[in-house]
Amino acid sequence: MQYFERTTKSVRHRLLFLFAGCTLLLGFIYWRTSLNVNSSFAAELAQIPVFLSPVIIAGMGLTGIIYAGGIDLSISSMIVVAGTVFGILFDHGAPPWVCFLGCYVTAVGLSTCNGLLVRMLGISPIIITLAGLQFYRGVALILADTLMPNFGGGLSIQKAAYQAPAKEHAAEILAVVVVAALAWEAYGKTFRGFLALGCSPQACRIAGLDPGRIRLTSYFVGGLFLGVAAVLFVTNVQVIEPARMATGFELGVIGAVVLGGTNIFGGEGTMLGTVLGALFLYLIGQAMLYAGVSEYWRTAIAGGVIVAVIGFDCAIHRRQKLLDELR
C-alpha cells in the first residue's frame, strides 16, 4: 500500500479508471466471444502478449525516463538498430542466443549513449532524442548495407529457433518482466531517485543526490527494458526491414505511458499505470472489432481516447493548478 501512497491523487484516480475500463472491456470481449462459436476468449487472451509485450516493456522503461524529467523519442530507431544487428548476426550464421544477446546489448548501449549525450552536452532530451530518431535509423540502414552482402532492403527470418521469444515465450517473458519491474519500483531505491529528480533537480542536489548521474541511470535502466522489448519486437516480425520497421512505435509507447497517468514533465506516475494504459488502448481496439466497427477506425479511436481521457483529467485538475499559480 505504501506503493500507492507515494503517488498523487490524480495518478491513483487514473489507475482506478484504467483498471475499471480494462475489466469492463475484457467482460465485453468475453460476452461477445461466448456468443460466437468461431472465436474463443482464451485465444483472444493468448494473443495479447504477442502483440502487446514490446509496447508494455518499452513503455515501462520509458516511464522511468519520463519520471526523471527526461523523454526518449528515439526508441523506434533504437529497436531498428538492434533488429539490424540481430539480422547481421543471423546472416553470418550465429546461433540464436548470440543473436538475442547482440540485439539486447545494442539497445542497452544506445539508450545509455542517449543518456550520456544528454548529460554531457546539456541540451534538452527532446532535441537529443529527436536527433537520435533520425540518426539511429540512418546508422541501421548503413550497417545493414555494409555488413550484409546481397542485402536488398529486407531480410526474411523464417527459422523457429530464431523466433522463439516472441512466438512461443512472449507471455512468460512479459509476466516475469512486469512482476520484476513492479517489485523493483515498489521496493527498490532507484525509481524513488528518478521521481525525486523529476520533482525538483534543485532539491535533489541539495539533498546530496547527483542529478546528472540519476538522469544517466534512468536512461540505462530504460535501456535494460528496451532491450527486452527489442528482442520481442524483432522476433515477432517476419522480415527485418530497416527502412520501414517500427515507424511510429515511439508514439504508441508514449501514448500508453501518458494514458497511464505519468506526468510528461516528470515527478509523478507509476509503471503499473503504463501497463494498464497499453492494455486499455489495445483492448478498446479489440472491443471495437467485436462490436463491428471497421479495422480502419482503430488508430482514430486510440487518439480519441488519449485526447478525451487526458483532456477530461486536465480540465478537472485545472482549478488547482490555477490556484497554485496565483499563490
Partner: peptide
C-alpha cells in the same frame, strides 16, 4: 482549445490529435 482551455500539455494534446487525425485519414481513404 485543448491546450489553452483544458490545460493539456501541448506535446500530449498534439500527440493525441496526431493519432486521431491519422486514424481519420485511414477512415476516409482506406
Amino acid at each position: 482549445t485543448l491546450i489553452a482551455r483544458l490545460d493539456v500539455p501541448p506535446i500530449i494534446a498534439t500527440l493525441g490529435t496526431l493519432f486521431l487525425l491519422r486514424g481519420l485519414c485511414e477512415v476516409l481513404l482506406g
